[in-house]
Write a protein that binds this DNA or RNA. Structure first.
Length: 329
DNA sequence: AATCCGGGGGC
DNA sequence: GCCCCAGGATT
C-alpha cells in the first residue's frame, strides 16, 4: 500500500480552506505505525476479556457468519439473537437453506423487517451450492457477487471466517473511528465514508483481522456508544483524538432525519362461510408478496404501490394475485 | 447523491 | 417520542 492510497497522506488538500474539518485540521500524526500498533494491541487485549458471547461467535463457519450478517443489517444484536437461533436450528447448513422453499424462509424471518434480505440470503445459499460446490468462496470478488453482500459483509466473512486482513466499516466502527481520529465530517457523507474506510484499511492487522474487526464493533456497542460514551473505561481513550480534544459528544456530526410521510388507506374484511378474503401484495413496494385484506390507497404516501379508488374495477391489488382457494371467500 | 427497505430496543 | 441499529440495491 502506497502512502497516498492509504488515505492519510500529507496531501495539501487535507488542509484546504473548504475542508469540512476547517478549525480542526485533519492530521496524520495519529496514524503512524506506532499509533496503529497501539490501537491494534489495546483493542485486541480488551476484546479478549470483554466480548459478549454471541451465537455466531462459537465457531468460524462462514455460513453462520453469512446468516448473522444478513440478519444484522440495520438490526440490533438483541433483536437478531433469537431469530438466528431459530433459523440455524431449521437450516443448519447451506444445503438445507438452498433446498428450502422461500415461504418457509420468510416465515422464520417474520418480524425482523427488511424481508428482501431473507430472499437474498436464500438466493445466496443457492448460488453457493450451484456455483461453488456448497463452499463459501474465499475470493472477495466472488463473495461480493452473492446477493445482499456488499463491502461490509464481504469483509466480515473474509476476516472472521478466513482471518484474511480485510477491513470492515459499519455503524459501530464508523463512530469509533471518527472519534479515534477526530473526524468531524457529516455522518454518512461520501467524504466521511471514504475517509473512514481508509482508516479501517490502515488499522486492520495482517493477523487476527477477524478479532480486531469484531473488537472495533464491540467497542462501539459497549463503550463508544452514540450518546454518553464511557471514555473513562475505554481501552483506547489515550489514543483517541476526540477524547483528547473533548469532542466525544459532538462526533459524529448528527444528521437531521426527514419527516415521516403520512399515508391514508382503507381496508375491507370480506367474510363468507367463516373464511376471509385475502390478496397478495404486488411487486416493488413495502411488504412485497405478503398477504393482506384487500386495501386501497386513499391519499398521501403510497409505499406499497397500492391501487387507488380509480382502479378498483377488476383488480384489488397491483399483484393481481388471488388468495389460495382454501382462503377465498 | 438520495431513497427505499421494518421493526424494535433504549433512553 | 425520538434516535439508533454489525447495509445493500436501486435510481
Amino acid at each position: 500500500m502506497t502512502k497516498k492510497s492509504s488515505g492519510f497522506g500529507n496531501d495539501a488538500d487535507e488542509f484546504s480552506p473548504d475542508s469540512q474539518n476547517q478549525g480542526c485540521p485533519y492530521s496524520n500524526n495519529e496514524l503512524d505505525t506506532g499509533w496503529v500498533s497501539r490501537v491494534q494491541d489495546k483493542l485486541a487485549t480488551w476484546f479478549e476479556g470483554a466480548q459478549r458471547t454471541l451465537p455466531w461467535r462459537q465457531d468460524r463457519d462462514p455460513y453462520r457468519i453469512l446468516v448473522s450478517e444478513m440478519m444484522l443489517v440495520q438490526t440490533t444484536v438483541t433483536a437478531v439473537v433469537p431469530y438466528f437461533e431459530r433459523f440455524l436450528a431449521r437450516f443448519p447448513d447451506v444445503e438445507a437453506l438452498a433446498t428450502a422453499d422461500e415461504p418457509d424462509v420468510l416465515k422464520l424471518w417474520e418480524g425482523l423487517g427488511y424481508y428482501r434480505r431473507a430472499r437474498q440470503l436464500h438466493a445466496a445459499a443457492q448460488m453457493i451450492v450451484s456455483k461453488h460446490g456448497g463452499v463459501m468462496p474465499m475470493d472477495p470478488k466472488q463473495i461480493r457477487e452473492l446477493p445482499g453482500v456488499g463491502r461490509y459483509i464481504a469483509g466480515a466473512i473474509l476476516s472472521q471466517a478466513f482471518d484474511l486482513p480485510e477491513p470492515i466499516l459499519e455503524a459501530n466502527s464508523q463512530r469509533v473511528l471518527a472519534r479515534l481520529i477526530g473526524w468531524r465530517g457529516e455522518q454518512g457523507s461520501s467524504e466521511t465514508l471514504r475517509r473512514l474506510w481508509g482508516c479501517a484499511e490502515r488499522l486492520v492487522p495482517s493477523r487476527g483481522a477477524g478479532n480486531f474487526n469484531q473488537a472495533l464493533m464491540e467497542l462501539g456497542a459497549l463503550i463508544c456508544t452514540p450518546r454518553s460514551p464511557s471514555c473513562l473505561i475505554c481501552p483506547v481513550s489515550e489514543e483517541c483524538r476526540a477524547r483528547r480534544e473533548g469532542l466525544q459528544d459532538v462526533i459524529p456530526t448528527l444528521t437531521r432525519r426527514p419527516e415521516p410521510l403520512a399515508a391514508s388507506e382503507s381496508s375491507i374484511v370480506v367474510r363468507r362461510a367463516g373464511r376471509c378474503l385475502i390478496v397478495k401484495r404486488g411487486p416493488g413496494g413495502l411488504w412485497e408478496g405478503f398477504w393482506e385484506f384487500p386495501t386501497i390507497h386513499l391519499e398521501g404516501a403510497n409505499p406499497g404501490k397500492r391501487p387507488t379508488r380509480d382502479d378498483t374495477d377488476s383488480r384489488w391489488c397491483p399483484g393481481d394475485d388471488r388468495a389460495p382457494g382454501r382462503d377465498r371467500a
